[in-house]
Design a protein around this nucleic acid. Structure first.
Lengths: 208, 208, 208, 208
DNA sequence: TATGAATGAGCATTCATTCAT
DNA sequence: AATGAATGAATGCTCATTCAT
C-alpha cells in the first residue's frame, strides 16, 4: 500500500468526520450534539475525532465552513450563468432566481444558516466569516453580473450592489417566510412562483 | 394585604422571571443558559422559577412568546399608521419602512429572532407559532393596508399579499446582511437608506 | 426540626465528606482517587461533594488541612506534658518521645505525610502550609519546653531551636527508615527502642 | 555499521528514554506525567517508549531505580572517604556530613525521594527496593566506618548501626524541615551549619 | 525497529430537576 | 409560596495502550 493511499485514508477519515459533524449538528444543534454521536455517525472512535479536530468548537467551525464553501460554490456557479443571459433577460433572471432558491431551500443551506445563526452569541466571529464566504460573495458576484447588464443597456443604470441586494432579498425573504425559517419544505411550484414574482418586481424597478 | 395585592405580587414575580429568562437566554443561548442564572437575574430562588414555569422549556416558550407579542405590537402600531397615508404615499411608506426597520434592528427583535431560529431543531412548533404571531401578523396587516391603497387607486392593482411580502423582504433582507445577522449595529443613516431604496423599488413595481 | 439541627446536618455532611476524602485519597493517592469513590464513601451523591467543596483540589486541600490540624493537636498535647517533667528528666523525655513516635507512626500521620509530599509538584503552597501547621508548630512548642528546661538548669545552655530540631530528627529519622517510609508497621518495642536511643543521645549532648 | 554500534544505539535510546522519564515524572508526578510527553522529551515516538519499556509502570520503576543507583553511588563514595579520617575526626565527620547533605539536597535526590514516597500506595514494593538501595546501603556503609572507628578507639564502644542511623537522622531531619520537604533550596551556609550541629551532637554522644 | 493513527476506558464537572422545610 | 440542599444523568476530554505499516 503506498504512502499516498495511506494519506488518502487519513483525509477520507477527516472528511467523514466533518460530514458526520455537520449532519449531527444539524440534527441536534450545537449544544445538544455530543461528540460521541458524531464519532458514531462517522464510524470512528471518539478520540479519533479529537485527534483530527482538537475540540468540539473547532469541529463545529470546520464543519460549518466546509458546508459554507460548498453552498457558495453552488451559488456562484448559478450566478455565473448570467454572464451569457441570452435574448430574454427576464427568462434568464427567472432561471437564475429559481436555481438560487433551490439551493437556499435545500437542507444543507438551511441547516448551515440555522446553525450559524444559533451560535452567534458564542462564536460571533464565525457568523461574520460564514456571511462573508456565502451571502457576501454571492451578492458581489451577482452585482458584477448586473453591472455588466446595466452597462450593456439591458438594465437601467443603477447601483449594482443595491440592485443585487434587493434581488436576493426578494428571493430569500419570501422563501424564509414560506418555509417558516426552514421548518416546512417549500414545494417546487411555490419556489417558481416566488422566483417569478421577484423577477417581475425587479424588472419593473430596474428593467429598461 | 388584599388578595388583589397578593395576586399582583405573584404576577410581578412571574413577569420578573420571564424578563430575566429572556435576558439570560439572549445572553447565553438556550442550552448554555442555566436556570440558576435566570433565577439569580430575577432575584428569586431556583425552585421558585420551577414553581411558576414548570420547565426550562416552558420557561423558554413563555419568555419567547412574551417578547414576540411585544415586538408584534410595536410593528402593528407602525403599520396601522398607513391607514391614513396623507398625500405623499411614497413618503408615508418610507416612514413606515424606516420605523419597521428600527424595530427589527433593535436588540429585542434580534435576540428573539436568533433564539427562535436557533431552537428550531428542538422546538419546531415554537418557530411556527412565533412566526405566525410576528412576521405573519405584520405581513397580513401590511397586506390589508396595501389592499386598501390599491383599491383607492394609489397603487396599481396587485396581489396585496405578495406586495406586502416583497416590501417586507426589501426591508429585512438588506438589513440582515448589513447587520451581519445582528452582529453589528446598523447606523441610523444606513437604516434610512435601506428604507428609501426599498420603497423606491416597491413604488417602481407597484406604484401608479 | 430546628434550624440548628438542620445546620448541624449540613456540617455533619461536610465533615463526612472531608473524612471520606482523606480516607480515599490515602487509599488511592490524589490522582487515582476519584470523586465518585469519595462520594460513595461519604454516603452522598457526587454533586453534593461539589456543592460543599467546589473542586477536587479544594476537597483535597481541606481534607489534608483538617488531618494536619488533628495530628498537630495530638502532638502539641504531648509536648505540653513536658511543662511538668517531674524528677527524672530522662524518663519524661523518653515518655514524650515515645508518644510522639506513636502519633507519627499512626496511619493518619503517615498518610498525611505521604499525600502532602506527593503533591508537592502540583500544590507547592499546600506543602508549606501543612509543614507550618505540623512540624514547625511542634518543633517550636518543643523548643519552648527545652528552653525552659535549660533555664532551669536541667539541660545545658543551648540553642533550643536546634536542640528541638535534633531531638525530633533523632525520632523521626530512624522511624522512617524502620517503617520503610510508612510501608511497614513498626512494632511497639521498636518504637520504644528508638525513643530510648534518641533520648540517650540527646541527653549525652544536651544534658547537664 | 557494526552490530555493536547498532546495539550501542539501542542502549543509548533506552537511556535517553529513562532520563526523559525521570525528568518528566519529576516535573509532573507519576499520574500527571503522560507517556507522550516523555516520548517528546526523549525525542522518540510513543510506541518506541513502549517497545523499550512495556508499561508506564515499568518505565517508572526503571527510571526510579536508575536514579536511585546514581544517588547511592555518590553517597557511598562520600562515606568511603571516612576510611581514612586523618587526625581530626570531628573535621572528617563534618566534611562527610556536609557532602552527604549536598547530595541529599540536590534536585535529583529530592525528586527521587518525592516520587518514590508519592507512589507508595500504588507501588509498595518499589519503595522498599529504593530504600534498600539508597538509605539502607548508605547507613550500612556508614555503620561499617563507625564500627572501625570505635574499634580504633576513636569513638566510644557503641552499636554502630544505631550510631549511623542517628548521625544520618541528625543530617536529613533538619535538612528536610529547612528545605520544606524539598520545596525550598537550602543555602550552602545552612547546609554547613546543619552538618556542624549534627556532628557536634554526634561527637558529644559517641566521641571518646 | 520505529511510528502515525486509532481506540477503550475513565473522570471531573455541570445542570435540570426534586425534596424537605 | 419560597427556598436550601441533594441528586441522576450527561458530556467533553485525556491517556495508556495497541495496530498496521
Amino acid at each position: 500500500m503506498t504512502g499516498a493511499t495511506a494519506a488518502r485514508g487519513r483525509i477520507d477519515k477527516r472528511e467523514a468526520i466533518l460530514n458526520a459533524a455537520f449532519t449531527v449538528f444539524a440534527r441536534r444543534g450545537y449544544d445538544k450534539a455530543c461528540v460521541q454521536e458524531i464519532a458514531d455517525e462517522a464510524g470512528v472512535a471518539k478520540p479519533t475525532v479529537y485527534n483530527h479536530l482538537t475540540d468540539k468548537e473547532t469541529l463545529f467551525r470546520h464543519a460549518i465552513l466546509a458546508a459554507a464553501d460548498a453552498v457558495t460554490a453552488e451559488n456562484l456557479a448559478i450566478v455565473e450563468r448570467l454572464r451569457d443571459p441570452g435574448d430574454d433577460l427576464s427568462a434568464a433572471l427567472s432561471d437564475t432566481a429559481y436555481r438560487l432558491l433551490e439551493v437556499c431551500a435545500a437542507e444543507r443551506a438551511r441547516d448551515l444558516r440555522r446553525l450559524t445563526y444559533a451560535q452567534h452569541a458564542n462564536l460571533p466571529d464565525l457568523t461574520a466569516t460564514v456571511l462573508e464566504r456565502t451571502a457576501q460573495g454571492v451578492a458581489e458576484a451577482l452585482a458584477d453580473r448586473l453591472a455588466r447588464l446595466a452597462l450593456a443597456g439591458r438594465l437601467r443604470p443603477c447601483d449594482p450592489t443595491v440592485a443585487a441586494e434587493q434581488l436576493l432579498a426578494l428571493l430569500t425573504g419570501p422563501l424564509e417566510r414560506r418555509s417558516q425559517l426552514g421548518a416546512r419544505d417549500v414545494p417546487d411550484t411555490e419556489l417558481r412562483a416566488v422566483a417569478e414574482a421577484a423577477v417581475r418586481t425587479f424588472i419593473a424597478a430596474y428593467g429598461t
